[in-house]
Structure formats: C-alpha cells, structure tokens
Design a protein around this nucleic acid. Structure first.
Length: 423
RNA sequence: CGGGGAGUAGUUCAUCGGCAGAACGCUCGGUUUGGGACCGAGAGGCAGCGGGUUCAAUUCCCGCCUCCCCGACCA
C-alpha cells in the first residue's frame, strides 16, 4: 500500500509565522510546522504530521513492551468514584481529579492514571502464583487537572501515555522485572533519538518505595537533577533529602543540571493490593498480596523532547526512526516553461518511491516558490529531501539532501537514489 | 492558587472617544520560478462576553470569560 501524501492537500500546512503564544522552542516548531494545534490551555489536536510522528513513537514503545512479554490492554477513562475511594485517592491525588457526572448524578473520574482499574482487574483475574509474573500495558489518554500547563506538549492536561503494570509474587521478582523494564526504557529513548538517564526520584502521589525517572538533560528543562561524575549516581534534586552537593554513594561532588522528565517507573509493592484486597495463593497454600510495579512514558512529551533535542535554526531535524515521512519530494521549476514537465516527473518519482515502500510527502504546490518549498521542507524536517528540477531532468539526476547535513548533491536518478535512501 | 501581561480580519499587529486599518495568508487575472517573487482586482470584522458613562465606545469605567508568562506542584 503506497504511503504518499500531496502537500497541496495536507491538512495542517506549515505556517509562515509561529503562533504568538508559542514561546518554548518545541511548541513553536511543532505549531508552525503544522504538527499540532492548540484548542485550550494544555489541550492540543494532533494534525496529520503530528499523528505520524506519534504513531512511530507508539510503534517503538509497543515493540519494546511486547519484547518484554507484556500484553496490550485498553482500560476505560471514565472511572466510578467508588473505585477511587477504595484507595483514598478520590480526594488526595494531586493534581486533583477531573470529574464528570452522568445523567443520574453519579460521579466519575477522568482517569489521570490507571492503578485503581488495573488492580481491580488483577484481583478478578489473578488468583495463583502460577499466573505470575504478568505484565500488561496500554497506550491511552490521560487527564490531569494541572494548575498551569506549560511549554506546549511538555505539560498538557490531556495526553497519551504508555502505562505498564507488572504483578509479582515477591519483591524479588518485582525488582527483577523493574530492571528489565528500566533497560527497555533506555532502548525506547535511544530508538527515538534521545539520550535519557535513569535517576532516583520521589514517588509523589503514585506511591510506593523505589522509583526512577528517566530524565533528558536540557538547559531549558524545568526540573533539576544531581549527577555524580565519579560513580554514575544520579537523583532528582527534590528526591535528595537535604544536601544535594555530595554524592550519597561515593562522596564525590554532585553536578546539578537542568532536565526534562521523560518517563517514570515505580516499585509499588503491595500498596494498592492491600487497599484493594488483591491477593494470590502461593505454593504453600497461603494467601499474599500481589506485588506491583508501574511504569509510564508520556508520548507527547517525548515527541516534544525530540524536537527540543534535534533542530536547527531552520526547523526540526527528525531522527529517521520517528520522522513523519521518510522522503520529501520537491519539484522546482526554472522559469523556462518546464513546470509541467518537472511536476510530472516529480509526481511519478514520488509514486514510484511510495510503491517501493517509502513513506513520501510530495510538495506538489503550484503556487509556492522554490524558496518557500525549501523553507517549509526544512521546517517540517523530513530526513531525505529529493529535488526534481529541469537541470536534474536534463542530467538524468535528482538533488538529494539529508536534513541533518549541509549541501545537496546530484545523484543519478533511479537506482542510485534507491541505494542512497536505503543506506 | 498568588503575581504580571494580553484578547480587533484566517495569522501577526496598528488605531486609543467621531464611518474599522496594515502586512502576510486566501480568491481571480497576468508576469515570474534553485532559498519565503511581482503587478492588478477582490472576498474577508457584532473589536472576547455582559453592564455602565456619553450625543457618540474598539477606545473610558465595572464585572465575567479566555489565553500567555513568572512563581508553588506534576508523565
């Protein structure tokens, strides 16, 4: 199935000027590039370009989750008040719940996280140690009633999250799974083109004992992390009780740096299973509470983090693994009446590439000048740019340029182009 | 939730008591074409909402709503 989109019909074209409210760089580039559109404070639509990147991230995460042996589920966002009262979080969770009433005045929470619902399922379906360990995950919408959303996609009130929950017979099993998930998280960020490091963190209103955040080092980050250059220790500054100047592990001086949170994993233990009476029968015939872990990554934030980390003065530079398209085909005339021929050649090439399995965006706009097409291509940030012009047609070449590199080079059309794109 | 700022054309912004403006974008015609081209003609507005002052309010006053920024809190 050919994956080909004509830019003349793209829903959500790049804007000449960024929206005035976009101050954070990733917000500006994503909004100007036509990836996202803001509806309300902290509430965004994903336009086709944004959805394509989002889906690439989803796919990477899904692959890593399945590789862990996790099974995909889909849990409801509407959750009855009574369920949240079992853990006490109906009133204590921070930020406070978004709530809605049905026609009978019954109250529901719009789920900010799914520990209650998954624990309810676990106590229904898990009864024996023989079923354990078991890992389940979903990629789904979360609602968080933040006091102040900021930075475009960096902190929103509605967002897509991958949340994974693990169930174990013992704390030891939990720790083993926790380490496996931690490694998978490292791979996820790496595959998305980000360098993220796991550091000790505070558990907040999720609860539990041990937790780690995956943080992305960034000057404009709103959080602070303390790193030890000597032994590799790292912790969120807020998680360090008292002094954040010396490493609690080896005593070396700590470097405090700005960072952005990319993911958070928790060893929950039996906090939720105690409150919700989720128990299994062990080999010795006795009952014990399920031991749980939970693990989250915000997809929109991850997407924004990639833009923060990978851009230049002209626009976004997508890593190939999550780019909205693989190839951007541009036709450029020279004023000698060749537009029709050039456009036809570009259209044909775009279709061929799409038939061969490349995802292709083709800038077929009649009324856009070459400069405008180049500027938009740089802004959108597709890894490969292929230019068809009368000059290239004459020489039987195409202009090939990597978004991440400097100059365009002429390559012989057809096979050479395939080789270059494949390499 | 405290402090600050802002709501006028699709977008970015002028006008600051007296018939609603520009640039860009959009439509039509023509000329252009390798880094955001040009000429001409057009369409496009309850000036966030509600009240008040005034002969007259986009403009002054009051209330509300919304958005942004800085703080305190979070994937």
């Amino acid at each position: 199935m050919a994956d080909l989109v004509r830019q003349s019909h793209l829903f959500g074209a790049p804007l000449r000027e960024p929206p005035k409210d976009a101050e954070i760089l990733s917000h500006r580039l994503l909004a100007q590039g036509g990836f996202i559109h803001q509806l309300a404070a902290g509430v965004f639509s994903l336009l086709p370009l944004g959805v394509r990147v989002h889906q690439c991230i989803e796919q990477i995460i899904r692959e890593e989750m399945l590789a862990l042996g996790a099974q995909e589920i889909l849990l409801p966002s509407l959750q009855p008040k009574a369920l949240w009262e079992e853990t006490g979080r109906w009133t204590t969770i921070d930020p406070p719940l978004f709530t809605v009433k049905d026609r009978h005045d019954r109250l529901y929470a719009l789920a900010p996280t799914h520990e209650e619902v998954i624990t309810d399922l676990a106590r229904t379906y898990l009864h024996s140690y023989k079923q354990l360990p078991v890992l389940v995950f979903q990629i789904h919408t979360k609602f968080r009633n933040e006091q102040r959303p900021t930075g475009g996609l960096l902190r929103t009130r509605e967002f897509t999250m991958k949340d994974l929950y693990s169930f174990h017979e013992s704390e030891e099993d939990l720790r083993e799974a926790y380490e496996r998930v931690k490694r998978a998280y490292g791979r996820i960020f790496q595959r998305c083109g980000l360098k993220a490091v796991p550091v000790s963190a505070a558990s907040g209103s999720i609860g539990g004992t041990v937790s780690h955040e995956f943080v992305i080092l960034a000057d404009q980050g709103e959080d602070r992390v303390a790193l030890c250059s000597s032994c590799g220790f790292g912790a969120k500054v807020e998680a360090l009780e008292g002094k954040a100047d010396r490493c609690p592990s080896c005593g070396h001086t700590l470097d405090v740096k700005n960072c952005i949170e990319g993911g958070h994993i928790f060893q929950l233990g039996h906090t939720y299973s105690d409150k919700m009476k989720a128990q299994i029968t062990r080999a010795d015939g006795k009952k014990s509470p399920l031991i749980m872990g939970c693990y989250g990554i915000g997809l929109g934030r991850l997407l924004a983090n990639v833009v923060e980390a990978s851009h230049d003065e002209r626009g976004i530079v997508w890593p190939a693994s999550i780019a909205p398209f693989q190839v951007h085909v541009l036709d450029v005339g020279d004023g000698a009446g060749n537009e029709r021929v050039t456009k036809a050649a570009a259209g044909a090439l775009a279709l061929e590439l799409a038939d061969e399995g490349f995802s292709v965006l083709t800038d077929d706009r009649d009324d856009a000048s070459p400069g405008e097409k180049f500027a938009d291509a740089d802004l959108i940030g597709i890894p490969w740019r292929v230019v068809i012009s009368p000059k290239h047609l004459t020489n039987n070449t195409v202009g090939l340029k990597r978004r991440s590199e400097g100059e365009e080079r002429a390559v012989p059309a057809k096979e050479s182009l395939r080789d270059a794109l494949a390499g």
